[in-house]
């Protein structure tokens, strides 16, 4: 089956000062797939994620070369609106940090910042997003209490919900389950499998088993380079590169 390419990365390098973080990455992402990125700490996998919504540019000393095209448009061209890009490419972080606001306001935050005033629309989106991450039943009685009172797993699902409320096309997840217990992790993985029907998902994970469980394809990063990208079953059963094999069988990293 020929699949539509929605993100096209070509010879993309990323430097902090003079230090190369990513070296000449070239890869494609297909519509409505889950792409896992695995690799040891410092391999540049989180940095790669941050380059896709240009969050890397928060750091003043960041420099890039090469191109990243999303739906055929270079996101690093000067006429791109950063806020629009970030609304289209939502991101979930390793540590679930809800904003210090109520549960409802956390999910509504992005919409409000986008200047949406329609109360009904905001309410619909909030409820819909909370339902999609299976959090609605747990919080519907206390939408106005502080989001900081939720458990870690709930907070992370809230963080996914606030991204969904923006109706993005892409969801980037940066080790979303690293601080969570197995049950919460399972719930999030279930949500991801569900969300895949409507969204294109890129998942950075330190847990190779998680990559094997949820993703369609897996990319292996090492020291800022893309070593291998292929269908997940192939990466985990017959990797082409010895280093990939070493990493997934736990010999280093």
């Amino acid at each position: 089956m020929e699949r539509e390419i929605v993100i096209r990365v070509r010879d993309f390098s990323y430097y902090l000062g003079s230090q190369p973080i990513l070296k000449k990455i070239t890869l494609d992402v297909f519509r409505h797939e889950i792409l896992s990125i695995i690799g040891p700490a410092g391999s540049g996998k989180s940095s790669f994620l941050r380059c896709l919504n240009r969050l890397n540019e928060i750091r003043a000393e960041a420099r890039i070369s090469g191109t990243i095209e999303i739906n055929g448009h270079n996101i690093y061209s000067p006429e791109v609106s950063l806020t629009e890009l970030r609304r289209k490419v939502g991101m979930v972080f390793a540590l679930p940090v809800p904003l210090p606001r109520s549960i409802f306001e956390n999910v509504a935050f992005g919409l409000r910042m986008a200047g949406i005033k329609d109360k009904k629309l905001i309410e619909e989106r909030v409820i819909d997003s909370l339902k999609k991450v299976a959090l609605w039943d747990e919080v519907k009685e206390r939408l106005n209490s502080s989001a900081l009172k939720l458990s870690g797993g709930q907070q992370q699902r809230l963080c996914i919900a606030r991204v969904l409320a923006m109706r993005p096309e892409f969801i980037l997840l940066d080790e979303p389950c690293s601080g969570l217990d197995p049950v919460s992790t399972m719930k999030i993985e279930e949500s991801l499998m569900d969300l895949k029907k409507e969204y294109t998902i890129i998942l950075v994970t330190n847990n190779t088993k998680q990559a094997a469980r949820v993703s369609d394809r897996t990319a292996f990063f090492l020291s800022g380079e893309l070593i291998e990208i292929d269908r997940t079953d192939r990466i985990f059963t017959a990797p082409q590169d010895k280093r990939t094999n070493d990493y997934i069988s736990g010999r280093f990293g």
Partner: peptide, 24 residues
Amino acid sequence: SYREGSIALGATQWQTVRMVLLPA
């Protein structure tokens, strides 16, 4: 992550300061 979370949701820097960082 307060700042990154807010900016990643499409808020501008100033919105982030006013709505998230100053209150926090």
